[in-house]
Design a binder for these strands. Sequence first.
DNA 1: CTAAGTTTTTTCCAACTGGTCAAAATTCAG
DNA 2: CTGAATTTTGACCAGTTGGAAAAAACTTAG
Lengths: 240, 240
Amino acid sequence: MPATKKSSADLTAAPKRQHKAEAKAAAHPHGKVRPLTRIQREKQDVILEAALEVFSMHGFRGATIDQIAEVAGMSKPNLLYYFPRKEEIHRRLMAALLETWLAPLKEMDATGDPFPEIRSYIRRKLEMARDYPRESRLFANEMLQGAPRIIEMIELDLKNLVDEKAQVLLGWMDEGKLARTDPYHLIFSIWATTQHYADFDVQVRAVLGPSRNGEGRFEDAARYLEQLFMHGLTPKPAGR
Amino acid sequence: MPATKKSSADLTAAPKRQHKAEAKAAAHPHGKVRPLTRIQREKQDVILEAALEVFSMHGFRGATIDQIAEVAGMSKPNLLYYFPRKEEIHRRLMAALLETWLAPLKEMDATGDPFPEIRSYIRRKLEMARDYPRESRLFANEMLQGAPRIIEMIELDLKNLVDEKAQVLLGWMDEGKLARTDPYHLIFSIWATTQHYADFDVQVRAVLGPSRNGEGRFEDAARYLEQLFMHGLTPKPAGR
DNA sequence: CTAAGTTTTTTCCAACTGGTCAAAATTCAG
DNA sequence: CTGAATTTTGACCAGTTGGAAAAAACTTAG
């Protein structure tokens, strides 16, 4: 359960064919569109990893190419050889991020039972907050700024997925397997409580104090959230 | 229930005597430390209000003095006459913010009953997310960046307050009035779920769609959270 | 009204920003 | 080993950034 570094390998590695070609064509003033070379692939990954580090802390405007280049261990012009503009790096990061971010919700299975399903959804989200805190912060940063660069994806992909899963939740409620409540706000509350441990990590650490700061705090959080949601969503026996 | 503009009046108006003097002394190269003039007070408020707007969207590094000056309706040098450095503005904002931010928790009364107390704590926090979204985002931005400028306040004032209220919660649990659970994570979950509606506003709006976007969404959220926490924290009758 | 104090504007600056370009260094296919 | 393609570097640029300085404009107490 390593929570540090290298964590974005899977994220940065899946940028969607189309984008690759795009980036390539843009990155290289030379005419032809060729497959990426080994060095191109490696360096792009190094850059995206560094960019994740910097963007997730300072947001788009607050991050500088110099900074990213330094973290990536290369010169600024060299970095710009791979990604001709700052926005391009951010775009690639966000595109990959959204995929990863929605994956856990996608797994929630309508044919399963609500409590195991919701419980493991919470677990997965909490694990992501633990293992990919920078991704969580990158996302949060974008949201805070009004999501200018991903608003369409939010309004399409994300909204559709949530709509679909809200239906699943409503189904469970109709079957009396889940307390009747607002499925959208239910999903929001799971997002909020789990991502909190990545986004407000400093605060959580400061409040818990040095004594409770091992990875154990995630176990405690998991236990607490499980209790909260399982109790909170247990259906009342019809009457009263 | 106005949720827009002018909302920071009370925030920016309470900068703590000591700070005022400090700011004054620093702002004016002239020797003596005099009480603030009317214009100074007014303009400082205008600037802080503008700075709140800008900092809350772009974070400290992403915000520029020019931007703040423009929103404040004055020239950059003029603004710098009142606050000689960018950091100073941010510091003032954060100091006032922390006060306001912790107020609701402070009100949680040990002599009251847990459910009404917790319920109204949630209400108050949700109202703050609705009425002071910029303040919430300002705070979130600082957290995302690792709280570099307020870490001491977090580790002292905030931690102490939370420790104190955690004891209150534990007391209620001992009396069997509240489900036994981790009081710290309980507080975190209230923070997370309520602030989510300010910090991730774009996402919430996008997901709920145009139909559910009136202020009514806060009522829905309040109802949902109330249900979640009230059910989730109801103590089980001893056995089992 | 006037002079001292306050506020605002104009001009300026050095450092930093995102980004360009051509030359140099390196890699790699044949 | 060689020549073409790729990668890296150094020098550079125009625009922006936080901030300084000083003079001009405005308030205000007496």
